[in-house]
Amino acid sequence: MNTAPSSSSARSLLEGYLRAKDLNHPELISECFSPDAELTFSIATDDIDFPRLVVGAPAIARTLVADFGERFDRCRTYYICAEPEVDENRACVMPWLVVMRQKDSGSLRIGKGVYQWRFGTGVEGADAIVRLHIHIERMDAVPDPDAAMLSALQGALPYPWLPPVALRDGVANFIATGSDAGFALPFQQPAMLGEAS
């Protein structure tokens, strides 16, 4: 029987992914992804690059956590919804926002896109992520040498579950803090679900 994971199980797996990625703990990927999971990307910007296909939890951990952590820190990835909604096909689609620092330049990096998750069975029959498609719609770099804007923007947004109204209000409040904060305006609205492939 191909039943969808409960909302609490899906939430736990998705929060596990963020702990691995945002806190740079690649070893945690194996706790939420199946050993043979697949990761794919579609990228609508030239500002960041990833391989189009990654297979297996160890390779996913390397791509999304270890290699990523060499380039970026102070990362917060937000799910733009209140709760994950898993359909009868064990799929879950949600927009995301990321706010982080690029290590080599000190720039604030802000991006948005859509996650497409597929849940299945992992080790010992437990629920696991078996496929993840990441659509990257936009990824901007903003000069922020003292990381003041990074701290202010992250402080304006509830983490990691960010309902659309909280995104809109949080970004609006951040933009109101200064004339150099207008770069965040395109991120006030989530990426459109139809733009993911």
Score class of each variant (00 low, 15 high):
Ala4Ile: 07
Ser7Thr: 15
Ser9Asp: 15
Ala10Val: 08
Arg19Asn: 15
Lys21Cys: 11
Lys21Thr: 11
Asn24Thr: 02
Pro26Phe: 00
Leu28Cys: 11
Phe33Ala: 00
Thr40Leu: 00
Phe41Leu: 07
Phe41Ile: 09
Ile43Pro: 00
Asp46Ala: 08
Ile48Trp: 06
Asp49Pro: 01
Pro51Val: 04
Pro51Leu: 05
Leu53Gly: 11
Leu53His: 15
Val54Ala: 08
Pro58Cys: 08
Ala59Arg: 08
Glu70Cys: 09
Phe72Ser: 03
Tyr79Ser: 00
Tyr79Cys: 02
Cys81Tyr: 04
Glu85Thr: 13
Val86Lys: 02
Asn89Tyr: 09
Arg90Thr: 07
Gln102Arg: 14
Gly106Asn: 14
Gly113His: 06
Tyr115Gln: 07
Gln116Gly: 13
Gln116Lys: 08
Gly122Glu: 06
Val123Pro: 15
Gly125Asp: 11
Ala126Met: 11
Asp127Met: 04
Ala128Cys: 10
Ile129Glu: 08
Leu132Val: 07
Ile136His: 01
Ile136Leu: 10
Met139Leu: 12
Val142Met: 01
Asp144Tyr: 07
Ala147Ser: 14
Leu150Lys: 04
Ala152Ser: 07
Ala152Ile: 00
Gly155Asp: 04
Trp161Leu: 12
Trp161Gln: 02
Ala166Phe: 04
Asp169Ile: 10
Asp169Glu: 13
Val171Pro: 02
Asn173Ser: 14
Gly178Ala: 03
Ser179Phe: 03
Ala181Val: 04
Gly182Tyr: 02
Phe183Ile: 05
Phe183Lys: 05
Ala184Gly: 01
Phe187Glu: 02
Ala191Gln: 09
Gly194Leu: 08
Ala196His: 08
